[in-house]
């Protein structure tokens, strides 16, 4: 048996953020993030705020995803304040549409370009670490901010699908296109 130790989750620093493994004390800010209706709308299958017990199980699932897959969603922290900002990274539970690059931030941190900064770093890491031909993002048909971010990351809209009973699009990008897309930190 081979399990990845989630405590060995890599730490990735960007200009303003740190992507790192989950800690117990991420729970309170994560639960608060998921209790916010606007944030939870596109981050929970029920499109409803998550109660605390469900949020804890979500967090355990994120950590367990790292243990079982060796990759997963990072906890994202604001460098300057140390505040928990959200979760960004790789997502591929059983039966998923592909190797997903996912993002979701707490509402106080929207509108600052943090999701783009974190997603760019997580995508760089994913393509560097794993022999992926492409990554995908499953985005709700009404989720305009995430569609915009996917476009900015150079992703293209692909197949339409029904996920959790709701219309979604599978956005995707190839390895070659990912590293061609600007602005890329290494290319800036």
């Amino acid at each position: 048996m081979s399990l990845f130790d989630p405590n060995a989750t890599p730490r990735i620093e960007t200009e303003r953020l740190v992507l790192r493994g989950w800690r117990k004390d991420d729970f309170e800010p994560f639960a608060a993030m998921m209790a916010d209706a606007q944030t939870a709308r596109f981050l929970s299958a029920e499109q409803r705020p998550r109660d605390r017990a469900s949020a804890w199980r979500d967090m355990a699932l994120f950590v367990g995803h790292w243990a079982l897959r060796g990759y997963g969603l990072f906890a994202v922290e604001e460098k300057e304040s140390g505040a928990f900002v959200g979760r960004v990274g790789a997502w591929r539970p059983e039966c998923w549409v592909g190797f997903e690059l996912g993002w979701g931030l707490a509402r106080p941190f929207w509108g600052r370009g943090y999701a783009r900064e974190a997603a760019r770093a997580a995508g760089d890491w994913a393509f560097a670490q794993f022999p992926l031909e492409r990554i995908v993002s499953l985005i709700h048909a009404d989720n305009a901010p995430s569609q915009k971010l996917a476009q900015r990351l150079g992703m293209r809209i692909g197949a339409s699908t029904i996920h959790a009973g709701m219309p979604h699009d599978v956005w995707e990008i190839s390895r070659a296109d990912w590293f061609r897309t600007s602005p890329h930190p290494a290319a800036v």
């Binding site: 989630p6 699932l61 367990g64 995803h65 243990a67």
Partner: peptide, 14 residues
């Protein structure tokens, strides 16, 4: 079932 199993593994780590 996978999510349930993963949550058990995650609880070990947390």
């Amino acid at each position: 079932a996978w999510r349930g199993m993963a949550a058990l593994a995650g609880a070990w780590a947390l």
